[in-house]
């Protein structure tokens, strides 16, 4: 590229990529947790992310709730939505072939998106301004307070979820159910409850992602879930689906890779190159970056 590499630009792009990647990571966490526990690619997850953004939007604009309260509120509502979806659409299919729940998930995704188009209206909406933007220029690298808040919130939530999964009783139960549902049941774990909680946690994270996207980019729309959902899903797989730190790593890599391809290769071929990288990663690590290939017992 003209002018050669320039350090401030590399750093700037890294900042851009991390900001984008942190959102992917938040959404990818939901994918990965749900997959880990019921082996379902929850296609509706991207639309829960969209719903979360709208819950927050209506909380702030119609009910005048401050952001700090609207965020947990939207997360709670999304958690309830996620659990409801699980109960109504996935639970009846738990004994059915996996692919049946996958198609149901696609159906739920279409349903939520079209409900959104109808009831939230198709027009994109500007997100309410919460705090005035402050921009710092550090040696040619521009960072805004909004970016920092987003990054900090995303990291805080990821730490929180890791603590829940690895340090609490319910987290232990989640890992047990993920490992062997029947054995966990025999140990007295209420698997249905644990699955419900997993959907709730994943959905809450997606809602947080949705609100952060609204907060940072200032625009939400009923169809926003599709693109973010797809990218986050890919990120989850690249990290090793079912593995919590894998989703975070995958999300960040996805964000940074995308930005760097635009910055140093070509924005026209961005998605093609990003996907090509992913395929190559998978060819070398068939179970994702942090996934371990399971040796089949013969």
């Amino acid at each position: 590229m003209p002018g050669g590499l320039d350090i401030s630009m590399v750093v700037q792009q890294l900042v851009n990529g991390l900001a984008l990647g942190s959102v992917y990571a938040l959404i990818a966490l939901g994918y990965t947790m749900v997959y880990g526990i019921v082996r379902l690619i929850n296609f509706a997850h991207g639309d829960i992310f969209m719903l979360g953004a709208y819950y927050g939007y209506f909380a702030i604009t119609m009910f005048k709730i401050p952001f700090a309260l609207a965020l947990p509120l939207a997360m709670g509502l999304a958690a309830v939505t996620g659990m409801a979806v699980e109960r109504l659409a996935y639970k009846p299919l738990r004994q059915a072939p996996r692919i049946a729940s996958l198609i149901t998930a696609i159906g739920v995704s279409l349903l939520l998106q079209n409900l959104g188009l109808k009831f939230f209206e198709a027009r994109p909406r500007p997100y309410p301004r919460i705090i005035p933007m402050v921009v710092w220029d550090v040696g040619g690298v521009v960072v805004s307070n909004v970016q920092l808040i987003m990054l900090a919130l995303a990291i805080a939530l990821m730490v929180l979820i890791s603590l829940i999964v690895y340090r609490t009783k319910i987290g232990k139960a989640m890992r047990a159910v993920s490992f062997d549902k029947d054995a966990a049941r025999l140990m007295g774990i209420d698997a249905d409850m644990v699955i419900g909680v997993t959907f709730a946690l994943g959905s809450a994270l997606a809602a947080a992602g949705g609100m952060l996207v609204g907060f940072y980019y200032n625009r939400i729309s009923p169809t926003m879930g599709a693109m973010y959902g797809l990218k986050a899903f890919v990120a989850a797989v690249v990290g090793g689906i079912g593995i919590v730190p894998g989703a975070m790593l995958g999300g960040l890599i996805m964000g940074v890779a995308e930005v760097f391809v635009i910055a140093f290769v070509s924005s026209m071929l961005k998605d093609a190159i990003a996907f090509a990288i992913l395929i190559v990663i998978l060819l070398f690590k068939p179970a994702g970056l942090l996934g371990r290939a399971v040796r089949e017992k013969v």
Partner: peptide
Amino acid sequence: PALRLAGDYLAIATLGFGEIIRVI
């Protein structure tokens, strides 16, 4: 890739292939 990948990982690789075709 189908020789090395299985299940959902293969799904992602094929999805990626479809997208690459489209971008090309």
